[in-house]
Amino acid sequence: MERPRVVREDGALDGDVVRAVLAGDVDRYAELVQRYRDKYARYAARMLGSLDAADDAVQDAFIRAYEQLAQCRDPANFAGWFFLILRNRCFAERRSSGRLGKRTSLESDPVAAPDDAGRRLEDEELRQRLQRELMELTPEQREVFVLKHIEELSYEEIAARIGGSVAALKMRMHRAYDRLRERLTREEART
């Protein structure tokens, strides 16, 4: 993944903000929180299956990133480093309550700005079914699916972000395709 040079009209480079926080200006950490609060929220929501869980995970990740800020080797790439902390936090969910296996209905989740009242009911059902089945994948399989088909990264970009070879990622994805196909065709056969 290329290192984003995040420049905002109103603010400083990420690297400068990180350095300022490390130098003692703790209040400026809020700039990073505001910048990245929503950037990886969709990833967290799709990985964890609910908005509440995503909120918790992103909050925890920001706090942990602050605690470990001195270990951020490349402050200019705070975004990438923060993503890895969030990722670890998402993966850690499975070690606790087993929430990841739960079938979570996202229907009542005010997940996003409402976009399309005209979406067909069929597609809405399919969307929910797909999300449910994603939660039945292993976290690693779900992650590659989310990064490729929801975050719309290429395999190369995914490899740059989370490590591993493109070939290994493809294998993981293809196993995910198999499992999705298996579960969804079985479900279709039942209906």
Partner: peptide, 9 residues
């Protein structure tokens, strides 16, 4: 004495 921003520092 830490300044607030790197530029100020």
């Amino acid at each position: 004495a830490f300044a607030g921003t790197p530029l100020a520092a």
